[in-house]
Nucleic acid binder design. Structure first.
Lengths: 238, 238
DNA sequence: CGAACGTTTGAGATGACTCAAGCGTTGTGG
DNA sequence: CCACAACGCTTGAGTCATCTCAAACGTTCG
């Protein structure tokens, strides 16, 4: 059951019937290679994407083609559910690693909206969790220095991956490069490299290859002024 | 009719019955002084706020009490509708200027959700417009220099105020200080001051006192890499 | 074996910050 | 009615974080 994982990190109170409704709304499950764009800004959308496996991101291009990541997605996320009410998106959606996704046609969501207001509200809730994450990212970019930003980002990833069982709290695989990190944190990849070295030397964490090891979660959270509240883990609909 | 203005800038296709439903959901209309906090992060919420007149903002505090604005609100905005599905917010909500607000109890929204799925979807849409604005702000903070950030911010305000008839495209009143601007753009107020001077000297715009005059909208938009698409003006539900 | 990619390091430039001070306006109390 | 405090705006000088340009290294893959 696909949706067992979906909303495990999003809404903890889905009923069995609701799980079935979401599973039933999926039209197909497909595998996509790494670094593929699955939808572009402005494109008319007729379906949304549930991420089953792998990592995805959403980003905005600047005039020179440089990207600003605006969201990271981990398995269980309803990546572009925003595209359902909005009809088209203001940003691009792409895979970072190879990914398995489930496609949900908007027509199926229409039916849920009409018939199951309680489930509709949970889907709405899920999109607002994304908005809360956006706000935390704004805080990160607006108020933290380079080291704080990276610390904050890694704390977020650790917490979110823990929520879906992909981190044990001490480390996790994240298939992204230092360049991706720089796009998420509004820095150059060169500076990211130096900051990662510093985080390593100060015993906070080691980000190397595809793996990030957290040596001192408390110190990392402090350095990044990280407070997991905005992730709304396990706090829906109660 | 309060909601005539609400969703004028949010959803252009509200039916008369829907306007009535929203007006009927308002429990009271009150006036609040400038710089008053109306709700704090973590607080349990039972109502949401429709901004009728004046300016409001949402912000996140850092450890030292410095603020990062995450949203600006103009008349017509459903300021903290996010608080309805989320139940509590990850940020504070406050007035900037004196403001007139209409309060909408969440119980009344529950009824709309159950009875009027089409209207519910429009409310959902409205919160996703806020999320889209968050993303544009992320782009602003992550990819633009100080001058670009301020140019982008002022373009956004100009466009949004135009949508509610509070700007003619060449200037608008915005009751905020240079310090507020710095909190929105992730800069110090001193640097904001220097950048405003430069914008003035280059003939792009004059931000002075409570008024912002746009001298060259096209050049300002170019400098801030501003594209109004993310505001979804007049593009809902069609 | 060579190309592509991601990472690492160095040196120098620069945009934004900090600290410090002064100015103008508004509002208030003696 | 004046004195003064509070606030917002303005400017200067010096510092520092981050960026840019440049180069080299290791791994992977064809």
């Amino acid at each position: 059951m696909l949706s067992r994982r979906f909303l495990q990190n999003r809404c903890t109170t889905l009923t069995d019937a609701e799980h079935l409704a979401i599973d039933g709304a999926v039209s197909q499950v497909i595998t996509i290679g790494q670094r593929k764009t699955i939808s572009q800004a402005g494109e008319r959308l007729t379906k949304s994407t549930l991420l089953v496996e792998g990592f995805m991101c959403r980003y905005i291009d600047d005039r020179k083609g440089l990207r600003q990541l605006v969201a990271m997605h981990v398995p269980g996320d309803f990546v572009d559910l925003h595209g359902y009410p909005l009809k088209w998106l203001d940003h691009d959606v792409a895979t970072l690693t190879q990914a398995v996704i489930a496609e949900v046609p908007h027509a199926a969501l229409d039916r849920i909206l009409d018939d199951q207001p309680a489930l509709a509200k949970k889907l709405w809730f899920s999109t607002l969790m994304d908005a809360a994450a956006h706000r935390a990212w704004l805080f990160r970019l607006g108020r933290l220095d380079a080291m704080g930003r990276i610390a904050h980002f890694l704390c977020e990833m650790n917490a979110r991956l823990q929520a879906v069982g992909l981190s044990d709290g001490h480390g996790f695989a994240l298939g992204i490069t230092q360049y991706d990190l720089s796009e998420a944190c509004g820095l150059t990849s060169i500076h990211v490299n130096r900051v990662l070295k510093q985080l390593r030397e100060e015993g906070l964490c080691t980000f190397r290859g595809q793996y990030c090891e957290i040596h001192d979660a408390a110190a990392l959270a402090k350095r990044g002024q990280f407070d997991a509240g905005y992730l709304y883990l396990g706090s829906d609909q109660t």
